[in-house]
Design a protein around this nucleic acid. Structure first.
Length: 579
RNA sequence: GCGCCUGUAGCUCAACUGGAUAGAGCAACGGCCUUCUAAGCCGUAGGUCAGGGGUUCGAGUCCCUUCAGGCGCGCCA
């Protein structure tokens, strides 16, 4: 819609530039949608911006600009207002145009090609496969998947990836936890299950499966098992147990390790798939390590002279690249840190040719950003191409009551439980109702309500209402508009034009949501559009006797339904035709 | 202590990246079903944009500062 005004305005400014009235034309002309209807459909502040440079009074300059505007069928009136705004009033035809556009583009309405099919990688969730996903991960999943949809709709070539932390200490602790439950089930665990291991019920289930699979074959490692409770440092105690298991079980340690990993990763995959979250690739940290990528990345940092050895550990001088302290790459005991494999992983992302990489991390990892960027810079890569979105936690409520959660103790609400309780649609929608960097209060009771208080149903209801009218018309034997109905001239009422105006906003919102990485803009827009539709529905009878008017109104309504469906699709929410 | 984030209506949050009289949803109050789904609509009330200073035609938005809250500051991930 903005193009209707942008083009004439551009022409006028170019003409004035030639005449020497203004010294320059801004590269990017901007148009506002005024809050007050009296201020027109669109407004430009261009006279205010150029007044000083042109040595003219703003209102005076605005007058000159208006005089230079070429005639346009879309603009019916202009006026100068306030300190020097130029307000534009558009013709009904400008609003009918959006309805025709929707009919032409249908499920592509709102999309654009600004991305130019640039390859963009999105990494999100990437939770350690040490247990089922909980509601905190759900937010990252909903946010990442929605953002992926939105960016695709903006013409980007999107590649979604889940980084699987399947190498490393946490996975070993899981293996040890499974083993302890395995022993416990046979009454062979000589002391109580320790607090700092994985205590969730799922660990018992995995242990039970392991027993079905291996019988008592693994029990022999219980013989000289370290006495964990007797040891001072609980973390060191677990490490001792892990070392013991690796040595004592030999090849079978791999079986134990995989028992937990495979089971949990499968569970996570299914969970996300059912939640409508799809990945192009599950990237294994273990494979990254085995391929020698970590060795190579570290060696590259070393040969570039960005490393030093201190206290037996290998350090990366990240302070030379904006970090506030140096970081260890390889520990005194010879093992790489998590950071080392992350450096390798990110270097790998750029080597794969992505023009932009977006990571979505839990907000508690924010201190981690400078060191990863430092490493990229040290490797001669452009750290601007790595964008980190920090996703805050979701706090669950039942009405006013907070649901307490503790991951360690295994007392957390899983994503699956949440989905089963409130449904995928409500879960997806509620998760993206806030900006990612804001805390999210997730009210389970509200998400389940099928009433006006629940924004998901409010929007879906608007969509279903349109289809209800179409069914109703058929039942009454009233003719329906053609799919390419173009006789829209009878839509002249301000309420009809206002509704069409709301439709015009959709492509703009899609663009802004992608630019700002803010899916919530879509959610807010849909609520506004649904409200505008409900208002129209209540004020105007759609299924009138006169066919031309009925057809035109129904065509407008179908445009609303199509737009709602397109928007909900971006958020991974269904658009039912009947409720 | 240092760094990052946040502070807007009773509650939960927006505000098109500097525009005109700061908007929604809940909650509160008052209305609207003989008519296409009342899972809806209309209206009323509610504000020192945390406080202070600055930048300019113009500030919730940018800069400085104070206060309050959250998170982070491992050879953990």
């Amino acid at each position: 819609m903005k193009a209707f005004v942008l083009q004439p305005l551009q022409e006028a400014l170019n003409a004035l530039l030639l005449q020497g009235v203004i010294p320059e034309v801004p590269a990017q002309l901007e148009l506002d949608r005024p809050k007050q209807v009296e201020h027109g459909h669109l407004a430009s502040n261009i006279a205010l911006l150029l007044a000083k440079k042109a040595g003219r009074k703003p209102r005076d300059l605005a007058d000159t600009i208006i005089a230079a505007l070429p005639a346009s069928p879309w603009i019916v009136r202009t006026e100068i207002a306030g300190p020097g705004f130029i307000n534009f009033f558009l013709s009904p035809a400008a609003f009918h145009a959006v309805i025709e556009k929707i009919q032409t583009e249908q499920n592509l309405f709102g999309s654009n090609q600004r991305g130019g099919q640039q390859k963009l990688q999105l990494e999100f969730v990437s939770a350690n496969p040490t247990g089922p996903l909980h509601v905190g991960h759900g937010r990252g999943a909903a946010y990442g998947a929605s953002l992926a949809n939105i960016l695709r709709f903006n013409g980007y070539d999107i590649f979604c990836e889940y980084y699987v932390n399947d190498a490393g200490r946490q996975m070993d602790i899981l293996a040890a936890s499974v083993y302890m439950r395995y022993l416990e089930a046979a009454g062979l665990l000589p002391w109580p299950f320790p607090d700092n291991s994985y205590r969730g019920a799922y660990v018992r289930e995995i242990a039970a499966q392991l027993r079905t699979q291996c019988g008592d074959r693994l029990e022999h490692a219980a013989a000289d098992i370290p006495n964990l409770p007797a040891m001072e440092d609980a973390d060191a105690a677990v490490d001792t147990l892990i070392a013991h298991l690796k040595q004592s079980l030999g090849e079978d340690y791999r079986v134990l390790h995989s028992a937990g990993l495979d089971e949990i990763l499968n569970d996570i995959r299914n969970d996300l798939e059912q939640f409508g979250v799809h990945y192009e690739r599950w990237y294994s940290e273990r494979q990254l390590v085995d391929s020698g990528a970590v060795d190579r990345a570290v060696a590259e940092l070393q040969s570039a002279g960005h490393c030093y050895i201190q206290d037996g550990a290998l350090w990366f001088r990240s302070t030379a690249f904006g970090d506030d302290k140096d970081r260890v790459l390889r520990r005194e005991n010879g093992a790489y840190t998590y950071f080392a494999s992350d450096v390798a992983y990110h270097a790998e992302k750029f080597a794969r040719g992505f023009t932009q990489v977006v990571d979505m991390w839990g907000a508690d990892h924010h201190g981690y950003v400078p060191r990863v960027k430092a490493a990229l810079k040290a490797l001669g890569l452009d750290d601007e191409k790595l964008e980190v979105v920090l996703v805050q936690f979701a706090i669950l409520y039942r009405g006013a009551e907070k649901v307490s959660m503790s991951t360690r103790a295994g007392e957390f609400v899983t994503l699956r439980e949440l989905r089963e309780e409130v449904g995928n649609d409500a879960a997806r929608f509620f998760y993206v109702l806030r900006r990612a960097d804001q805390h999210l209060d997730f009210d389970l009771d509200l998400a389940k309500k099928h009433s006006e208080e629940n924004p998901v149903f409010y929007i879906q209801y608007a969509h279903a209402r349109v289809y209800s009218m179409l069914r109703q018309a058929t039942e009454k034997g009233l003719s329906l508009p053609a799919d390419n109905e173009r006789a829209l001239d009878c839509l002249q009422d301000s309420r009809e034009l206002a509704l069409a105006d709301a439709l015009w906003r959709f492509p703009e919102v899609v663009h802004n949501a992608a630019r700002d990485r803010e899916p919530h803009q879509i959610a807010f827009y849909l609520r506004d559009l649904a409200a505008a539709f409900h208002t129209y529905y209540n004020s105007t009878k759609i299924l009138v006797e006169e066919p031309p008017l009925r057809h035109a109104r129904l065509t407008l309504c179908k445009g609303v339904a199509q737009t709602i469906a397109n928007g909900l699709k971006l958020l991974g929410v269904s658009a039912p035709e009947q409720m």
